[in-house]
């Protein structure tokens, strides 16, 4: 039944903070089984959009559906199918990695034995086993992203929503995360993630949406959006950034 529904559907999502519009009506359909990249410059509203999509932030208008379940009307049904890694990896960081995984697993109502087994596997695959009982607060940025990903994956969600999973991550960890995500999509899962690293998006994504100023500027499969050019060229053109500096900042060069 869920196969007819898109993995994630957003309709007219809008949000403003103190009169300043952050997201101005976003419509998006993420097909099940896709690897979806949400691109945008800093401050484009990526985090706000994803937060509203997963139920972390109440939208001013519009709605979000996860495999047909309304995130705001039927949160229990939607959140069951959903794995989330929020921006800045918001975690209870005074737990060790294993404790944190156990906590997330039990919060999701999983069987303790399954939690133990999956936690051990995840820690092993993500090379976090060596950290032992180090608290997550003392982890490096890359390790925090990895444990955040592990928490989002633990209960076997059908849709994975990740905010900036590759930000501040070293190449080794990034490769590992990429690998796991590709395996997850190959296994029938759906990934939506935000990023402004073109290279990663170009390599991974089947679909792309470019968000700027709180609205979707381009959307479609990667070849559709990219056309004949590189994604970066399209992105800069759509976002309309300035590229050249002239006389200003002359004091920077000697």
């Amino acid at each position: 039944m869920t196969a007819e529904h898109p993995a994630l559907a957003l309709r007219g999502l809008a949000k403003s903070f103190d009169g300043k519009v952050a997201v101005a009506g976003v419509d998006l359909d993420v097909p099940a089984g896709s690897f979806y990249g949400l691109l945008g410059p800093n401050g484009a509203g990526k985090t706000t959009t994803l937060s509203m999509a997963v139920g972390l932030l109440r939208p001013d208008a519009g709605g979000a559906w996860v495999l047909g379940h309304d995130v705001w009307a039927d949160p229990a049904g939607a959140k069951q199918l959903l794995g989330v890694m929020p921006d800045g990896v918001r975690l209870f960081d005074r737990l060790s990695g294993a404790e944190l995984l156990a906590y997330h697993g039990l919060l999701r109502g999983m069987d303790p034995a399954v939690v133990d087994q999956r936690a051990a596997e995840l820690l092993d695959v993500l090379a976090l086993g060596d950290a032992g009982r180090t608290l997550v607060v003392d982890y490096s940025a890359g390790m925090k992203k990895k444990i955040g990903l592990a928490c989002a994956l633990l209960h076997g969600p059908r849709l994975l929503v990740l905010d900036e999973p590759f930000e501040a991550v070293d190449p080794v960890s990034a490769a590992l995360i990429r690998d796991i995500l590709q395996r997850y999509v190959a296994g029938g899962g759906t990934v939506v993630f935000s990023s402004h690293v073109m290279e990663v998006v170009e390599r991974l994504c089947s679909h792309v949406a470019i968000l700027a100023g709180g609205v979707i500027k381009r959307v479609g499969t990667l070849p559709e959006v990219r056309g004949e050019r590189s994604l970066e060229q399209v992105f800069v053109e759509v976002v309309g950034g300035r590229t050249a500096t002239g006389e200003e900042l002359a004091w920077l060069s000697r």
Binding site: A98, E99, A102, Y103, L106, P112, V115, D116, A119, A120
Partner: peptide, 8 residues
């Protein structure tokens, strides 16, 4: 020592 749940 023990599984993740036991540690928590």
């Amino acid at each position: 020592t023990g599984g993740a749940v036991a540690q928590l």
